[in-house]
Lab assay of single mutants.
Amino acid sequence: KEEVSSHTSPETGIWVTLGSEVFDVTEFVDLHPGGPSKLMLAAGGPLEPFWALYAVHNQSHVRELLAQYKIGEL
């Protein structure tokens, strides 16, 4: 988790977690339908608090999209 928390910018890579999985979403930030700034709120940390607020994320196609960016496990 400490390593994930240091990845919060395009220069270091933008990493997020979901459960025990780690994702590098650097290439996706500008494609995020809610805008880059919304995704950047989660940079370096867990997606769960944000996904709890926005139910649109609880769809299979969203998880499939995220899976493409998986880089490891906590």
Results as ranks from 00 to 15, higher is better:
73 E>Y: 10
24 D>Q: 00
3 E>A: 12
24 D>P: 02
51 W>T: 01
7 H>C: 03
20 S>M: 14
25 V>W: 02
55 A>S: 15
37 S>H: 13
48 E>T: 04
6 S>E: 15
49 P>K: 10
52 A>Q: 14
32 H>G: 03
69 Y>P: 03
20 S>I: 14
10 P>R: 13
28 F>G: 05
23 F>Q: 06
31 L>N: 07
4 V>R: 09
34 G>L: 00
43 A>R: 03
71 I>S: 08
50 F>T: 11
26 T>F: 02
52 A>N: 15
52 A>I: 05
12 T>D: 13
43 A>H: 02
51 W>M: 04
35 G>Q: 06
2 E>K: 12
40 M>L: 14
3 E>L: 14
27 E>I: 01
47 L>H: 01
72 G>V: 02
65 L>C: 12
49 P>A: 07
44 G>A: 03
30 D>K: 09
37 S>L: 08
13 G>Q: 07
11 E>V: 10
1 K>R: 06
42 A>I: 00
51 W>E: 05
53 L>M: 15
72 G>N: 13
4 V>D: 08
11 E>R: 12
32 H>S: 04
57 H>N: 02
19 G>S: 08
48 E>V: 12
54 Y>C: 09
11 E>K: 11
57 H>E: 08
51 W>C: 03
3 E>C: 12
2 E>L: 14
18 L>E: 11
2 E>M: 14
9 S>P: 07
53 L>N: 14
36 P>H: 02
63 R>L: 10
40 M>T: 10
41 L>R: 09
51 W>I: 00
20 S>P: 10
38 K>M: 07
16 V>L: 05
52 A>C: 03
19 G>W: 03
6 S>D: 15
67 A>N: 15
22 V>Y: 07
36 P>K: 14
39 L>A: 07
38 K>Y: 08
67 A>I: 01
62 V>I: 05
54 Y>L: 06
7 H>E: 15
62 V>A: 03
29 V>R: 07
35 G>P: 06
32 H>C: 01
72 G>C: 13
14 I>G: 02
13 G>F: 01
6 S>N: 15
1 K>G: 03
47 L>E: 00
33 P>T: 02
37 S>R: 12
55 A>L: 06
12 T>G: 15
10 P>I: 10
50 F>I: 03
37 S>P: 08
15 W>F: 11
63 R>N: 06
60 S>K: 14
49 P>Y: 09
52 A>G: 13
64 E>S: 11
41 L>C: 07
52 A>P: 07
68 Q>W: 04
51 W>F: 06
18 L>A: 08
56 V>F: 14
22 V>S: 04
27 E>H: 07
23 F>T: 00
65 L>N: 08
9 S>A: 11
72 G>P: 09
24 D>C: 06
35 G>K: 02
36 P>G: 15
30 D>Q: 07
3 E>P: 08
22 V>L: 14
73 E>F: 10
52 A>W: 02
39 L>S: 01
8 T>G: 11
32 H>N: 00
53 L>T: 15
5 S>I: 14
13 G>I: 05
23 F>M: 05
49 P>D: 08
51 W>K: 03
29 V>G: 01
62 V>K: 01
67 A>F: 09
20 S>C: 11
13 G>C: 05
18 L>G: 06
15 W>K: 03
20 S>R: 12
7 H>N: 06
55 A>T: 15
44 G>E: 05
11 E>M: 09
24 D>E: 04
32 H>F: 01
35 G>S: 05
14 I>A: 01
14 I>N: 03
4 V>Y: 05
53 L>I: 14
28 F>S: 00
8 T>N: 14
45 G>E: 04
36 P>M: 07
54 Y>N: 15
26 T>W: 00
14 I>E: 02
37 S>D: 15
12 T>Q: 12
52 A>E: 15
8 T>L: 13
2 E>D: 13
60 S>N: 10
15 W>R: 03
36 P>N: 03
69 Y>A: 03
33 P>Y: 00
64 E>H: 10
32 H>L: 02
67 A>V: 10
30 D>V: 09
31 L>Q: 14
65 L>S: 08
44 G>P: 05
73 E>D: 14
4 V>M: 11
22 V>N: 05
6 S>K: 15
47 L>F: 04
6 S>R: 15
7 H>G: 12
38 K>V: 04
74 L>Y: 15
7 H>P: 05
36 P>W: 11
13 G>L: 04
70 K>N: 07
37 S>A: 13
10 P>K: 14
19 G>T: 03
16 V>I: 08
42 A>N: 02
72 G>W: 08
73 E>I: 08
17 T>L: 11
19 G>K: 11
7 H>D: 04
7 H>F: 08
41 L>V: 04
65 L>R: 11
64 E>I: 04
55 A>E: 15
70 K>P: 03
49 P>M: 05
16 V>R: 04
73 E>C: 09
55 A>V: 08
